[in-house]
Design a protein around this nucleic acid. Structure first.
Lengths: 149, 149
DNA sequence: TATTGTTATACTCTATAACTATA
DNA sequence: TATAGTTATAGAGTATAACAATA
């Protein structure tokens, strides 16, 4: 793609700016909507991952999330303190911690997914449902290749 | 928007995940394509902003960029060291620094915009031109309200 | 008294290196 | 010898507070 001399580029028309801004806005909305549940957007990600892939070790979860295993330790500490998940030694490999959602974790996850939907809805308030779906489809298409090989 | 019980949510279908991933991927592509020019994506943003809104003070530029004025100091230091812009005392208000792009700054900006286009093109490689335009349009629509009022 | 740029400082986030216990 | 989890530490990025020059 070459520079089109007929359309003067502007900061607010750069794809990087638009994407970054959408992320910042959605993170703020998530923070607001998840605050009553006492969890962050990233913590919701962990709960959702464990709910759909349970049981998983800490490192498997960290890899799925794209964070370092040392970063994962603090994340799991926080969620365990909140009573949302529990560490259980893997009987087949006692070096590993298997992570299980607690009942409270499952309940919170369902509430958090509704809160997350609300946050997304606020971000996409100017789009009709067809457009919102199209946006998701396009984003899925450009991110379908692995980031963390 | 309420939780649709028929579609099981997954981490990689969450809008926040898709957007964040697109941002991370594009930042990596920008870093790669801008490396030969010796600037970062954010520095390109400053150059572009000054090119389209010149002349601006440091604080005006910081506000446009959405960063703190103290963060702006280091950014301007770096760009001035690289010879891409120059601080000039505002004759009408000597507390202010007016930022001017140098010739080297203008030249680098044009090269950086081409590199940025290449980075975007790589991110959107699986979309045809119509879809790429549609993605930009949708992102513009959801970010058209001010973030930093 | 308020504002611009600056510096010093602190805080957040994350990764790297080293340790332990297990394999 | 290699790996999972942990801890200590360091680095990047950013903001808050305090200061000098100017309005």
């Amino acid at each position: 793609m070459t520079r089109d001399q007929t359309t003067a580029p502007q900061l607010h028309t750069q794809l990087a700016y638009l994407l970054k801004r959408a992320v910042v806005d959605l993170e703020r909305l998530h923070a607001e909507h998840l605050a009553p549940l006492g969890i962050t957007g990233r913590e919701l990600g962990v709960l959702l991952l464990l709910h759909t892939h349970d049981p998983q070790s800490q490192q498997q979860t960290a890899a799925h999330l794209g964070v370092d295993r040392t970063t994962m330790v603090a994340l799991v500490d926080t969620l365990e303190t909140k009573g949302l998940l529990a560490r259980r030694p893997d009987p087949t490999d006692r070096r590993r911690n298997v992570l299980d959602l607690t009942d409270h974790g499952n309940t919170t996850l369902l509430q958090a997914l509704r809160a997350s939907d609300d946050a997304e809805h606020h971000l996409l308030t100017d789009l009709d449902p067809t457009e919102a779906t199209h946006l998701r489809t396009l984003l899925t298409r450009i991110t379908h290749t692995p980031t963390h090989p």
